[in-house]
């Protein structure tokens, strides 16, 4: 009896701090996002008034919000496809072929992942600078640069963001897939090449199916984290500009908070929550395959 009381006290004292902090700083704010989205609440008015779904109706007519949503989806689709295609192919090459300096490549490719997004945006501001930036000075070797390419101009800003985001993410996923691909037994490849299967066929018919479970989990998480990374990059690199051309949903939410429209900002937050849940459920469903064993 004494022992069991000691056990409960022990369990309680171990778990309670974690649960309390988790509740105050994660559960409560999440519930608040949903609650506040139904209210009109401003920075300069102490009171809040219940307005029902009015914030959401305003959202649907807000051209900047629609644009930020389109940009978010564009970034999710393009960044995911490019990152995963490159990461998978490079990982397959580095694990399958005997490459000299394999360790060197692995170490170098991982570097962008340890840098702060602020640092990356600083690096890329040097890359993208219109006059004597790194990229334009290289392109200047091949063509006339009297009117420099404006990488952060309205037309190209999304492309510039995509390049920076892929640059940041590629190494992390490559290293991860290298680890799971090195678990695929060599004998499978040997018997496949005896049967006359080339490298490309082996990649699609052996490597990819065997690491599919890993691809599937990482894909879901990558897509969710892209919503967030897009925000980090936009906030540091462009602040949503020029002229809202690079606004993403989270940065728009943040700018509405800065404008003091808390209720409206939280309506955007609700959309982000629902969107990311729906998206992960969708990806999970679409990528469902029979798990293979090796």
């Amino acid at each position: 009896m004494k022992r069991s009381r000691g056990r409960s006290a022990f369990l309680f004292s171990c778990i309670a701090p974690a649960v309390i902090l988790f509740f105050i700083f994660m559960i409560l704010p999440t519930l608040n996002v949903f609650r506040m989205s139904l209210f009109e609440k401003g920075a300069y008015t102490p009171t809040e008034t219940f307005v029902g779904l009015k914030n959401f109706r305003t959202l649907l007519a807000d051209a900047n919000f629609i644009r930020s949503m389109q940009n978010t989806i564009l970034l999710i689709v393009v960044v995911t496809i490019i990152t995963f295609a490159f990461a998978l192919v490079f990982a397959a090459i580095l694990t399958r072929e005997k490459i000299k300096g394999q360790n060197f490549f692995r170490i170098v490719f991982y570097i962008p992942n340890i840098l702060s997004v602020v640092v990356i945006s600083g690096i890329f501001s040097a890359v993208y600078k219109p006059e004597n930036g790194m990229l334009n000075s290289i392109i200047g070797l091949f063509r006339d640069m009297s009117d420099p390419i404006l990488w952060k101009g309205e037309k190209l800003v999304m492309v510039s963001l995509i390049i920076a985001m892929v640059w940041q993410a590629i190494g992390y996923y490559m290293v991860m897939y290298m680890a799971s691909m090195s678990g695929v037994p060599q004998s499978l490849y040997e018997s496949a090449s005896l049967d006359g299967a080339g490298r490309i066929a082996q990649f699609f018919q052996i490597t990819i199916p065997l690491v599919w479970t890993n691809i599937r989990t990482t894909l879901t998480f990558f897509i969710i984290s892209t919503i967030n990374m897009a925000f980090l990059f936009v906030k540091a690199m462009t602040s949503g500009g020029p002229n809202h051309a690079s606004e993403v949903t989270l940065s728009y939410m943040y700018s509405q908070k800065d404008a003091g429209l808390y209720g409206y900002s939280m309506a955007i937050g609700v959309i982000i929550f629902l969107f990311s849940f729906a998206l992960s459920a969708l990806v999970n469903k679409v990528t469902e395959r029979e798990p293979l064993e090796f």
Binding site: N32, V33, N228, M266, S280
Partner: peptide, 17 residues
């Protein structure tokens, strides 16, 4: 479930709190 709650989704309510 907390794994799916991104900190930056809830930064505004945390600030207001």
């Amino acid at each position: 479930a907390g794994l799916f709650i991104n900190v930056n989704y809830i930064v505004v309510p945390v600030f207001l709190m």
